[in-house]
């Protein structure tokens, strides 16, 4: 019983991490039809710079941890914003090329990170509490999972509030449905392109710092590994659907953890099988809109 609780709770925690990456991907795809391969490097840079700051002011203290999250978020935001303005915007409406430049950016950035921080993982430390466990229904859950869940819940809540109650949120929701009509109402939809990149980047940057604490290290490939799972999550959840991404993040991660514990560590493969099944049964994903 306690094992099952452990598996389920860690699954939800991992799902929270996926959501930090997938939410941005999903928003960006939904509004701009851009598959953002560079999303993983936003995360990686957030993790590296977050760690650089934390390690300078005493990595085991809470101030360093909180500051590193802030730094990660800011770095992710800045990186993503610059990416949108410098690389995506000049290729307006050329979706394939937009995908290609993000591929190129990811390719180049990973190599640059290796040049700066080396190709071996850098093991990191944080507040001791993160490594301790809390007993829940007999299962000893590492505290880092709770931090992930809190972060993802806070992100989801603020995204929902933003999308539902602000004018920009309204523009984004309308743009996901029908971008041309938004411009035909006199609204400059490009501003919201930059905005979704910035939001996605900040979530990814925060996700990077937390992912580093979750795995215990930072490496140049940290983001790209998570990115593949985030892609799977967004396809299963339904491309462009935020709530779909949230649900699929948890489902996929729980499934993955279950398979890892009970089916001999086959979690990664089960996830791909799940993707295949969803595509065969429901190609548009759980909550995706019917293709036009």
């Amino acid at each position: 019983m306690s094992t099952l609780v452990l598996v389920l709770v860690t699954g939800v925690g991992l799902g929270a991490l996926y959501f930090l990456v997938a939410s941005g991907l999903s928003l960006i795809y939904g509004l701009m039809h851009v598959l953002n391969f560079a999303h993983g490097v936003f995360l990686t840079l957030g993790a590296f710079l977050g760690w650089e700051v934390a390690s300078r002011i005493g990595a085991t203290g809470w101030p360093a941890f909180l500051l590193s999250i802030l730094v990660g978020g800011l770095v992710g935001t800045a990186f993503a914003t610059v990416t949108e303005l410098a690389l995506i915007r000049p290729l307006y409406e050329r979706h394939i090329e937009q995908v290609l430049v993000t591929v190129g950016l990811a390719f180049a950035a990973v190599a640059l990170f290796e040049g700066i921080w080396g190709s071996d993982p850098i093991f990191i430390t944080g507040p001791a509490w993160l490594d301790e466990t809390t007993t829940l229904l007999g299962a000893r859950i590492p505290n880092v999972y709770f931090v992930l869940m809190i972060a993802a819940t806070a992100l989801l809540a603020s995204l929902v509030v933003f999308l539902r109650y602000t004018r920009y949120g309204m523009i984004i929701r309308a743009g996901v449905e029908n971008r041309a009509m938004v411009t035909a109402l006199g609204i400059d939809v490009k501003k919201s392109f930059t905005l979704v990149f910035a939001i996605g980047g900040s979530a990814a940057g925060v996700g990077g710092v937390l992912a580093a604490h979750y795995t215990g290290y930072v490496s140049a490939h940290l983001g790209q590994t998570l990115l593949i799972f985030a892609f799977i999550v967004t396809v299963i959840g339904g491309l462009g659907s935020l709530s779909g991404a949230a649900i699929a993040s948890v489902l996929v991660a729980v499934l993955q953890q279950l398979a890892n514990y009970y089916l001999g560590g086959t979690g990664d493969l089960i996830v791909v099988v799940a993707l295949a099944v969803v595509l065969l049964v429901r190609p548009r994903g759980l909550l995706g809109r019917r293709p036009a």
Binding site: L87, L91, L100, G104, A111, L112, G115
Partner: peptide, 20 residues
Amino acid sequence: RIPLSEPLFLLGTLFILVVI
């Protein structure tokens, strides 16, 4: 030195330039 000693960084940058 760091960017120039990473062939994949240079190739990735070249790729981006070609696409644009």
